[in-house]
């Protein structure tokens, strides 16, 4: 078995061994190594420090580092598990693993819930849902009147909030998604199925044999 620690380029803050990350996620060692190539690219796009900053994520998502977006902010916050303002390699791989086609659906449902739970209260509230619809309108060409927004939010909220207590809890969310599976379609990235084949430029010479 080779020694990954011999590569100086991999001495970056938050770097974790691909073997460990592969053991904890649906990724193989080769795929984790391919993800490291992607991580290096993203984490050096503005500040070359081996960490993904919020502006770097925004640049990758929008090709514009100044394009602030509520949902990109939420993605960043959820990936930044340590809450230290940057995404480290281990956080990147573990968070992306939820988007793997083979990841448990329950994990995808839970991750999406946290995305929508803007204020981290453990519930999705009506005001949060309205704020997100308004944010979506702001970033798109879609134009809706205030009355239309209220109607969409009311209708969606009533469908999901089956207990009628004015907020959507994780159980209600799970049930709602099971009836509307398209809601978590964006929680699966087919690219991750075999990133080493889909993105040949990311393929690096693996120093560790995959255990599969």
């Amino acid at each position: 078995m080779g020694c990954l620690c011999s590569k100086n380029t991999k001495w970056t803050p938050g770097y974790e061994e691909p073997t460990i990350l592969a053991a904890e996620t649906p990724f193989t060692v080769s795929e984790v190594e391919a993800l490291y190539e992607l991580f290096k690219k993203l984490s050096s796009s503005i500040i070359d420090d081996g960490l993904i900053h919020k502006e770097e994520l925004q640049l990758a998502l929008f090709k514009n580092k100044n394009n602030r977006n509520l949902f990109a902010d939420r993605i960043f916050d959820l990936f930044d598990v340590k809450r230290n303002g940057v995404i480290e390699f281990g956080e990147f791989v573990r968070s992306l693993s939820v988007f793997h086609p083979n990841a448990p659906v329950a994990d995808k449902i839970a991750f999406a819930f946290r995305l929508y739970d803007l204020r981290n209260t453990g519930f999705i509230e009506r005001e949060e849902l309205k704020e997100m619809v308004l944010a979506l309108l702001h970033e798109s060409d879609l134009i809706l009147s205030d009355d239309d927004v209220e109607m969409i939010v009311d209708k969606s909220f009533k469908e999901a909030d089956t207990t009628g207590d004015g907020r959507i809890d994780p159980e209600e969310w799970k049930e709602f998604v099971s009836k509307n599976p398209s809601l978590i379609k964006n929680m699966t990235l087919p690219y991750l199925k075999d990133i080493t084949l889909a993105f040949p430029s990311f393929v690096v010479s693996s120093e560790v044999e995959d255990s599969e």
């Binding site: 619809v133 970033e139 798109s140 809706l144 969409i152 690219y191 430029s201």
Partner: peptide, 26 residues
């Protein structure tokens, strides 16, 4: 589809900020 008949969550899920496939674009 008439947006008013759409589900708010479905609408939101189409945000570019939630489209992580962009991360893989070269």
């Amino acid at each position: 589809a008439n947006p008013v008949s759409m589900n708010a969550f479905e609408l939101i899920s189409k945000s570019q900020g939630l489209n992580l496939s962009s991360l893989f674009e070269k």
